[in-house]
Measured scan of single mutants.
Amino acid sequence: VKVFRALYTFEPRTPDELYFEEGDIIYITDMSDTNWWKGTSKGRTGLIPSNYVAEQ
């Protein structure tokens, strides 16, 4: 598990995607895809765009 911080707010387009706000901490559990990672924030899990976060 790696810890990342959201650089921007992300509004999901599908139920599989995770909503998060700029500054949120996201725990990444799967980075197997280059563009979409699986992450958890505020008790919810979903896909996030990798270019919206920076490693802490």
Results as ranks from 00 to 15, higher is better:
38 K>I: 15
22 E>L: 10
10 F>P: 01
33 D>L: 08
12 P>I: 06
35 N>G: 12
19 Y>D: 07
32 S>I: 11
20 F>R: 01
30 D>W: 04
16 D>C: 10
22 E>M: 13
8 Y>S: 07
13 R>N: 12
34 T>Y: 10
41 S>D: 02
9 T>Q: 06
16 D>I: 08
7 L>D: 01
7 L>F: 03
21 E>F: 07
47 L>P: 01
55 E>V: 12
13 R>W: 05
23 G>N: 07
26 I>C: 03
13 R>Y: 08
50 S>H: 07
1 V>W: 13
41 S>P: 01
21 E>R: 10
1 V>T: 12
18 L>G: 00
11 E>F: 15
35 N>W: 14
30 D>E: 10
2 K>W: 14
53 V>L: 14
54 A>N: 06
10 F>D: 00
2 K>V: 10
55 E>Q: 12
26 I>S: 00
30 D>L: 04
20 F>T: 02
56 Q>E: 14
24 D>Y: 04
43 G>K: 04
19 Y>H: 09
45 T>P: 05
29 T>V: 11
4 F>P: 00
23 G>S: 03
53 V>T: 02
31 M>Y: 07
55 E>D: 09
12 P>Y: 05
10 F>Q: 05
37 W>A: 00
47 L>A: 05
9 T>Y: 05
45 T>I: 10
36 W>R: 05
18 L>C: 02
27 Y>K: 05
25 I>W: 09
45 T>H: 12
3 V>E: 09
53 V>Q: 01
18 L>H: 01
5 R>C: 10
22 E>D: 05
7 L>N: 03
7 L>K: 09
48 I>G: 01
48 I>V: 15
31 M>P: 04
52 Y>R: 04
46 G>M: 02
53 V>P: 02
47 L>S: 05
29 T>R: 06
9 T>S: 12
24 D>R: 01
8 Y>N: 06
22 E>K: 15
7 L>Y: 03
24 D>C: 06
47 L>T: 06
54 A>S: 13
23 G>F: 04
37 W>Y: 13
11 E>L: 15
1 V>G: 13
22 E>P: 06
25 I>T: 10
49 P>M: 06
46 G>E: 01
3 V>D: 02
19 Y>L: 05
2 K>N: 07
41 S>V: 15
49 P>F: 05
1 V>F: 14
49 P>T: 09
27 Y>E: 10
34 T>D: 14
19 Y>S: 12
53 V>S: 01
53 V>C: 03
34 T>W: 08
6 A>S: 03
41 S>H: 12
2 K>E: 05
33 D>T: 07
26 I>G: 00
46 G>C: 04
19 Y>C: 09
40 T>P: 02
34 T>S: 14
39 G>Q: 01
37 W>E: 00
27 Y>D: 05
5 R>P: 00
20 F>N: 01
39 G>N: 02
17 E>M: 12
31 M>I: 06
19 Y>Q: 11
56 Q>M: 15
42 K>Y: 09
50 S>A: 14
21 E>M: 09
53 V>N: 01
47 L>Q: 05
45 T>Y: 14
6 A>I: 02
31 M>L: 06
34 T>L: 14
36 W>I: 05
38 K>M: 15
52 Y>T: 03
26 I>Q: 00
50 S>L: 03
36 W>L: 06
55 E>I: 13
19 Y>A: 14
34 T>G: 13
24 D>I: 04
45 T>G: 07
8 Y>R: 14
7 L>I: 11
29 T>Y: 15
31 M>T: 10
45 T>M: 10
53 V>G: 03
1 V>N: 11
34 T>P: 15
25 I>L: 14
48 I>Q: 00
18 L>P: 00
6 A>K: 01
11 E>M: 15
43 G>W: 04
30 D>G: 05
4 F>R: 02
55 E>T: 08
16 D>H: 12
30 D>I: 04
49 P>I: 03
24 D>A: 07
37 W>D: 00
22 E>W: 06
1 V>H: 12
52 Y>D: 02
25 I>D: 06
45 T>S: 14
52 Y>N: 02
30 D>K: 03
36 W>C: 07
53 V>D: 02
11 E>V: 15
2 K>D: 03
51 N>C: 15
31 M>D: 09
22 E>I: 13
19 Y>F: 13
13 R>I: 08
7 L>M: 10
50 S>D: 03
7 L>V: 07
37 W>S: 00
22 E>R: 13
52 Y>L: 10
31 M>R: 08
3 V>A: 11
22 E>V: 14
14 T>E: 09
12 P>A: 11
10 F>H: 13
11 E>A: 11
20 F>A: 04
25 I>A: 06
29 T>N: 08
5 R>I: 15
3 V>L: 12
41 S>F: 12
31 M>C: 13
36 W>Q: 03
28 I>T: 00
14 T>P: 02
49 P>Q: 05
2 K>R: 15
10 F>M: 05
20 F>L: 07
54 A>F: 11
54 A>G: 08
37 W>C: 03
21 E>W: 04
16 D>E: 14
32 S>K: 08
40 T>Q: 11
10 F>K: 04
8 Y>K: 13
51 N>M: 11
1 V>C: 15
37 W>L: 05
21 E>S: 09
44 R>H: 09
13 R>C: 12
6 A>N: 01
54 A>W: 10
45 T>F: 14
40 T>D: 06
32 S>N: 11
12 P>C: 06
17 E>P: 00
9 T>L: 06
40 T>I: 13
33 D>Q: 08
31 M>Q: 13
32 S>T: 14
15 P>G: 10
20 F>S: 01
48 I>W: 03
5 R>A: 06
38 K>V: 15
29 T>K: 06
19 Y>E: 10
17 E>L: 08
13 R>D: 08
8 Y>D: 04
43 G>S: 05
45 T>R: 08
5 R>Y: 15
4 F>I: 02
31 M>K: 07
55 E>F: 13
14 T>R: 13
40 T>M: 14
49 P>G: 03
10 F>S: 13
37 W>K: 01
44 R>Q: 09
54 A>E: 14
9 T>W: 04
